[in-house]
Simulated assay, not measured.
Amino acid sequence: MTDRTPAPRGDFELPPVDEQMCFALYAASRAVTNLYRPLLDPLGLTYPQYLVMMLLWERGECSVKEIGAVLQLDYGTLTPLLKRLETNGLLHRNRDPEDERSVRVAPTDEGRALRARARGVPEAIGRVIDLPDEEFEATRLALRRLTANVLAGEARVAEET
């Protein structure tokens, strides 16, 4: 049996959960991701698969390494996701003839055709989010800055340990 003794409180109180940044980010992320589900289900895509397809629609072809870097996904998450999309006929993966260690990913004709069916998704999401353009852009930029700060902080912590 494990010890269920609560952690000592010390001389301070923690802010309530709903006042913590981590909870606000978690709740917003879940809410927005769940908002995508009914829009992506008819397309046969999960949200991470949609992100991969959007990147391929934008760039045409990418290395697995590039996809992982842009979408901040590790190989353990990305590989099964790409296999599923390939099985569903939406992309193909091939070794790079210039570098056999690298795998290139490109949409198939079916994958490119899916773009037309997904065209209204960003607008539908934007309508529900319902922020003025300036506030939407300011929030997006603040979240990107927060992410960059956290990743830089993670790297500093890793160097210190």
Rank of each mutant, 00 (worst) to 15 (best):
D18A: 01
M1K: 11
R4G: 01
L40D: 04
T46A: 02
Q20R: 13
M1I: 12
L39F: 15
M21S: 05
E61S: 12
Q49R: 13
N34Q: 15
V32I: 15
D41N: 13
E19P: 00
W57Y: 14
M53A: 13
P6C: 05
D41F: 10
L35D: 07
V17P: 02
T2L: 09
D41T: 14
E19W: 06
V17C: 03
Q49V: 03
P6T: 05
T2V: 07
C22G: 06
T2N: 06
M21I: 12
C62E: 10
R4W: 07
L51F: 08
Y36C: 09
L35F: 08
S63E: 15
A24R: 04
F23L: 13
A24H: 02
M53L: 15
E58H: 10
T33F: 03
E19G: 03
M54H: 03
A28W: 13
G60K: 01
M1L: 14
D11G: 07
Q20L: 11
P48T: 13
A24D: 00
P15M: 11
M21L: 14
M1D: 12
M54F: 02
P6D: 05
P42F: 10
Y50G: 08
E58R: 14
M54I: 05
Q20F: 04
D11S: 08
D3K: 04
S29T: 10
Y50W: 14
P16C: 03
F12Q: 09
G10W: 01
P6S: 06
P15V: 12
C62F: 11
G60A: 02
R30A: 12
Q20E: 11
D3H: 08
E19K: 08
S29Y: 04
P42R: 05
P8T: 00
F12S: 06
M53P: 08
T5Q: 02
D41S: 14
T2F: 11
L45R: 01
L14F: 03
Q20A: 10
R4N: 07
P15G: 09
P42A: 08
S63K: 12
M21G: 00
L39S: 11
L35I: 09
L56P: 09
P38H: 07
R9N: 00
L25S: 04
T2K: 08
F12A: 06
N34I: 09
P8D: 00
Y36E: 03
Y26C: 05
V32A: 08
A7C: 01
G10S: 09
D3C: 02
R37I: 15
R30G: 12
L56G: 06
N34V: 04
R37K: 15
P16A: 13
L45S: 02
D41Y: 09
R59T: 08
G10F: 01
P15E: 12
Y36I: 01
V17A: 07
M53I: 15
Y26R: 07
C62S: 13
Y36G: 04
L40A: 06
W57A: 09
A27D: 14
